[in-house]
Design a protein around this nucleic acid. Structure first.
Lengths: 225, 225
DNA sequence: CACTTCCCGGAGCACTGCTCTTGCCAAGGT
DNA sequence: ACCTTGGCAAGAGCAGTGCTCCGGGAAGTG
């Protein structure tokens, strides 16, 4: 395998990227349900059958878009969470949560694709789960080195098991009881953003910024930040 | 208009119900994305064009299914929440939450259709929002007559506005600060169930019963139950 | 130069939602 | 009793979809 990619290889990579970019434009414009391979091909001036050399199926294109979406949010959240002088743990956490919500509001269709109901059946692709773990792990990293909460009760064995799994995945310096609470906060954050985006609040709190901020602060309280 | 429906009218109602039942079967079996009018027509032995006299469009059939799903969960939750001798507020609340989760686990595709990402564009149909409000209102009804939490802080004006709207919609006997907390718990519950169903927890806590129970108890704690 | 490998384009299949036309059959009025 | 009206279903058809297969041509290799 040559170090310098051949012209073929370069063209292939470029076209793959172009296809993904066009697909992403259409996704952002009209949502995942309306994304059609033929439309993407038309936008690129290709025959629809040509796309199948780059993505074997429509689902594969969608998973590529999912991974891209996960990585995109993760970049935003990780940047907001990074420790800096004079930045409290609480500010890092709430900043990360706010960055997550802001990204979702800017990219509703991509958020729906990644964090919403799975489109066909259930996809347990390892690439997506790895990319999807970045945001929760980034938020968890804020808690590294904290003490176990004072009210830490004994965990059910199944909960302890799950917490151990999470700890192995990245939060080595976080006590198990706090990991459980953190997981609860993560699902709560997902629920907050999903509710707002998918209209589950029926626009009761609208504009929802105040409600979102209050909720995020409450999460920080619960984590003892 | 005759009091006794004519034969025509009866046939019409019956066929409408049959169509809905068949559609629901297919929804439960294969999900909303795979639901096709033609397949429903085939199952009923009809021409596909015949369905259009009963549902003008596929989306209308879907919204009918959404309303049905909302009403179905609401029945389950309301039954679990109803006050009975020797049943504490806390038990009513946690029971309602558990009933919600149990229904979702039994009807994943219907849950995804109703509470997941909206399928086409955004549907703000009034029938769906009215039906969708039943479950949160049922949970809110458990809190009627409670005192405002001790740590009740002054609410931002926008939050107070939203709380007032909710109070007008059904929770007349619940203090505003508690309404905000209740709304937060509602989004958290949605996030819990959605995460579990859509694989956002990446099977970290699996089986998730213990995690769900712990989360629901934490919500009850937060509400001061 | 020949030869292989890769890739694009076109035709085609089975399917979808939806529309339009045709013809049937029962209900209602004269 | 006859005829008109209106609801109803069936069928053909349109535009669109995901996906497959085959043929020709271009790019890279000996």
């Amino acid at each position: 395998m040559p170090v310098v990619p051949s012209a073929r290889e370069r063209a292939r990579r470029e076209l793959t990227a172009d296809i993904l970019a066009a697909a992403r434009r259409q996704l952002a414009a009209s949502g995942a349900a309306a994304l059609s391979l033929r439309a993407v091909a038309r936008e690129l001036g290709l025959a629809s059958s040509a796309l199948y050399r780059y993505f074997a199926t429509r689902d594969e294109l969608l998973t590529a878009l999912i991974v891209q979406a996960y990585d995109d949010v993760a970049d935003a959240v990780e940047a907001a969470v990074v420790p800096r002088r004079g930045r409290s743990r609480r500010a890092r956490f709430t900043g990360g949560c706010r960055a997550f919500r802001a990204w979702a509001l800017e990219h509703p269709h991509e958020y729906a694709l990644a964090h919403g109901s799975p489109v066909p059946g259930y996809r347990g692709d390892e690439r997506t789960t790895a990319a999807g773990a970045r945001v929760p792990l980034a938020l968890l990293s804020v808690l590294e080195g904290m003490d176990a909460p004072a009210t830490s009760s004994r965990l059910a064995s199944q909960l302890a098991e799950g917490a151990a799994r999470v700890a192995a995945a990245g939060g080595g310096q976080v006590p198990p009881a706090l990991i459980v609470t953190a997981a609860q906060c993560w699902t709560a954050l997902l629920g907050l953003v999903s509710s707002e985006l998918f209209g589950q609040l029926a626009n009761t709190f609208d504009p929802a910024d105040a409600f979102a901020d209050a909720t995020i602060e409450a999460l920080a309280d619960r984590l003892g930040l």
